[in-house]
């Protein structure tokens, strides 16, 4: 086979390894796919944004279409949840700095990175738990999904956002397991995509909160 007219198009993106032993296996970096997941995550974010835009426009149309809209008071715990989610973005950034600085052998940096990831994950769970708590508080006031249009949209938007956060938690768990494993490789692009997604969850939550707070 002549290789004159063919050549490798891209250099494989660098892998993040934990140790020398694993970095040998890590060399199995997938051709080209690293870049793909980077634009893939932005395409995904675009689609999620679009569907939340659809929910939002439904909310405003519904609010204007009938006089039965009763504004509900948002549970105060939401602001605590917001803080947790924003804080988790900060811890993720710390984790990112540690992870990107990891040389193949520096085990303390690995520990540090894992620690910050753990913190991010914990804050993620705090957020989800807090959101659940907020639902219980509303339910205690007699505000359920079908009680009035405002509560309907409250539950729908928070549930949709919560589902997306759960997907982010799953991605974080995957990243951590890859990062901690001696035998598997973590692709930088996978990590970056997860981080981008997680930050987006924070931004999306701020948006949802804003929409829920808006009174026309």
């Amino acid at each position: 086979m002549s290789s004159t007219s063919y050549e490798s198009v891209r250099k494989p993106p660098p892998a993040l390894g934990v140790s020398k032993a694993s970095s040998a296996r890590v060399a199995k970096v997938l051709y080209g796919a690293g870049e793909a997941s980077r634009s893939g995550i932005w395409v995904g974010i675009f689609a999620i944004t679009m569907s939340f835009a659809a929910f939002t426009s439904a909310l405003f149309v519904r609010q204007g279409s009938s006089a039965d809209w009763a504004h509900i008071a948002l549970p105060a715990i939401l602001y605590g949840n917001t803080l947790a989610l924003l804080l988790s973005s900060a811890t993720l950034q710390r984790a990112r700095r540690a992870i990107l600085a990891v040389a193949a052998t520096e085990s303390h940096a690995v520990r540090q990175g894992l620690g910050w990831l753990m913190a991010t994950l914990a804050l993620g769970f705090v957020f989800i738990g807090g959101q659940y708590q907020a639902w219980r508080q509303l339910a205690a006031q007699g505000l359920y999904l079908a009680t009035n249009p405002n509560s309907s949209f409250y539950y729908v938007l928070t549930a949709m956002h919560g589902l997306h956060v759960l997907a982010g938690i799953a991605a974080l768990v995957f990243v951590m397991s890859r990062f901690a494993s001696r035998h598997a490789a973590l692709r930088r692009s996978t990590f970056e995509a997860t981080a981008t997604y997680w930050h987006f969850m924070g931004v999306l939550w701020l948006y949802v909160l804003l929409v829920l707070r808006t009174k026309l």
Partner: peptide, 13 residues
């Protein structure tokens, strides 16, 4: 999503 990412990123030299 797959189509878009593929077209943007996997084009040959």
């Amino acid at each position: 999503l797959n189509f878009i990412a593929t077209t943007l990123d996997l084009r040959a030299k």
